[in-house]
Write a protein that binds this DNA or RNA. Structure first.
Lengths: 123, 123, 123, 123
DNA sequence: GTGGTCTAGACCACG
DNA sequence: GTGGTCTAGACCACC
């Protein structure tokens, strides 16, 4: 389900958050799907359940999961996170674009790259 | 010369690296200019000289500075970093664009934003 | 009769208490009406009968229900809870108002909001 | 600085968050004041430093604190949280008012109570 | 069984 | 010394 990179200097729970967020946004995990329990996912990744707990808590705060005590955690419906996600991504893209501009990259180059990226297929 | 933001979550030496990198890339610091000593810049920013040392070391690795033992650190010629800089920025921009695409932003939106950013003046 | 929200963070029995309390206070369930058995309501809500039992017990303590051994639970007469309910609600409203005041909201704002709420129709 | 209520069923870290939030909103802790370290406050409250850590993390996410790694946590400037706070308080007040209305309390009663509360002095 | 909380003790990067 | 992360093991409420 997830592959951890122990060489990565970021905390483990952050990696877990990122990977799961990706799986949810990409639609690989459908709405209301039951997530593995903190204990089982902890076993699978050979990581303490508390670490998974932390990741789940963050995902819940971000609106990607909802939790039913005693039953488990579930994938939240898209409406919960879609807007915020787009907004945040656009902001990050802006920043990257400004930095690219400052580094001397021209509008032409970026426009053609943009076209290339969107032509790559739906993936 | 530099203004630190203590509320930034990143380590201070990283902020120093970023600011100095910006000053060099933008041309505010010309080639072969002598940089202030780690001690004096440390005094100015009210920061431990070790922290400045660390920043200078990183800048040297990235090709923005070169050091002459016993004389100090100097701004490296543009040729040392220009290509690498562009390449790295383009890579980061690619990543941000792909993420934006995955989040559901359309090519039209990004194209118009791109145009807007490049129309903001040369700054 | 009742719709549960599994994404609510509160325990289910508490939700059941709240919903039934609302039905009784609003008059939708008249005095001395027989409540469904814990087993049948448990079936209907697809919930463990223990959970319903717990809700009924709480409602009885609050004075909204009374139980006759071997016959079932019944809606208590209004006199049993009317005063306590008003008093408790007023107390909660006081708390919320004080907190709003502390947060910097003015009397004018709250007065106009109050008027707006009471103008919304009897519902 | 803080008094914990062990009879309270809410988690300890939540109590700490609430108390500190109150101290900050009320102005008892001024902007940029240094907060006690997680270890020292943990000692003082006879609680594990991790628990305090959790409280500080939440306060930071809410915008009440900012943290400088290796230096400590500090009270954030009012501008960081003022607007969100007001909005949230108003929403809670709305809910309480609607419930009070449903319980049979009249607009007159609430209006007079409102006036009384705002007449209590600045406290 | 599930998530939620808490403890005790450890290691790390930063300054 | 400070915050940040992680582990191991424990207890609780809920279902």
């Amino acid at each position: 389900m997830i592959l951890l990179d122990y060489r990565d200097k970021r905390p483990i729970y952050e990696q877990v958050v990122e990977k799961l967020e990706h799986l949810i946004v990409s639609g690989a995990l459908e709405e209301n799907t039951k997530m593995p329990s903190v204990r089982s996912l902890g076993m699978e990744l050979v990581v303490n359940p508390n670490t998974i707990q932390r990741a789940y808590t963050q995902l819940e705060q971000k609106g990607y999961l909802y939790t039913v005590a005693g039953r488990g955690s579930f994938v939240a419906p898209e409406s919960e996170w879609r807007d915020g996600k787009k907004e945040k991504m656009l902001e990050e893209w802006h920043l990257a674009t400004r930095k690219a501009k400052e580094a001397g990259l021209t509008e032409d180059v970026l426009t053609s790259e943009l076209h290339r990226i969107y032509g790559e297929g739906t993936k």
